[in-house]
């Protein structure tokens, strides 16, 4: 969805996908990630997308795509029917965050979540300057953004803790797409997580 979407995120996610995995990609856009996982990992599965133009793009990309409103949940997906359920750069566009995260780990054995970090230092600077941040990772004006949830790396991890979701791997990238080791919630503009089922 953003200008930086592409190779780096996709390669990270591809590394987390076992060969031949059955994948569900929520908010799959034009299907580029699924296409990449299909080509590079032999993955199969489905994308879920609400926007008809993107659904058509997926079909042109030769991706299985289901036009379904994620706000209504994943009610008709069977428990543990996918190896991996991905929501790449789309969690922030949906209202029912908790419900969706738990549903992802009901339907999939693992989940991958990626999102822009609202606490990235440039975003903090924008707020300090009195404005909502507009950046490569949050490329929208406040009045026309598709994003409805604004959260940080620290916030997300606290929610995982609350929901009993196990963080199995994390990668934080800066705005040049380079991995961030120190102070991720300050220096990172984008975070990717590999998550496991509820612990308790």
């Amino acid at each position: 969805m953003t200008a930086l979407d592409g190779r780096i995120d996709y390669d990270v996610i591809a590394d987390w996908v076992s060969p031949g995995a059955r994948v569900l990609d929520l908010g799959c856009g034009d299907g580029a990630l699924l296409r990449h996982l299909k080509d590079s990992r032999g993955a199969s599965g489905y994308g879920v997308e609400i926007d008809i133009e993107r659904v058509i793009s997926c079909m042109r990309n030769g991706i299985n795509v289901l036009q379904i409103d994620l706000e209504k949940g994943l009610y008709d997906f069977v428990d543990q029917s996918f190896d991996l359920v991905i929501i790449s750069n789309a969690l922030q566009t949906l209202h029912r965050t908790e419900k969706l995260l738990t549903e992802m780990l009901r339907v999939g054995r693992e989940a991958v979540v990626s999102f822009p970090n609202f606490a990235f230092w440039k975003h903090r600077m924008a707020i300090m300057d009195g404005h909502m941040p507009v950046s490569d990772r949050l490329p929208y004006q406040w009045y026309d953004t598709p994003n409805v949830r604004f959260f940080t790396i620290a916030d997300f991890e606290a929610l995982c803790e609350k929901l009993g979701i196990e963080i199995r791997e994390r990668l934080v990238l800066d705005d040049a797409g380079q991995p961030v080791q120190e102070e991720p919630n300050f220096l990172g503009s984008f975070a990717l997580y590999r998550l496991g089922g509820a612990r308790g």
Binding site: I52, M59, I63, L66
Partner: peptide
């Protein structure tokens, strides 16, 4: 596990 796409117009 069939390949299936679905559009709701």
């Amino acid at each position: 596990g069939r390949n299936v796409s679905y559009a709701e117009i």
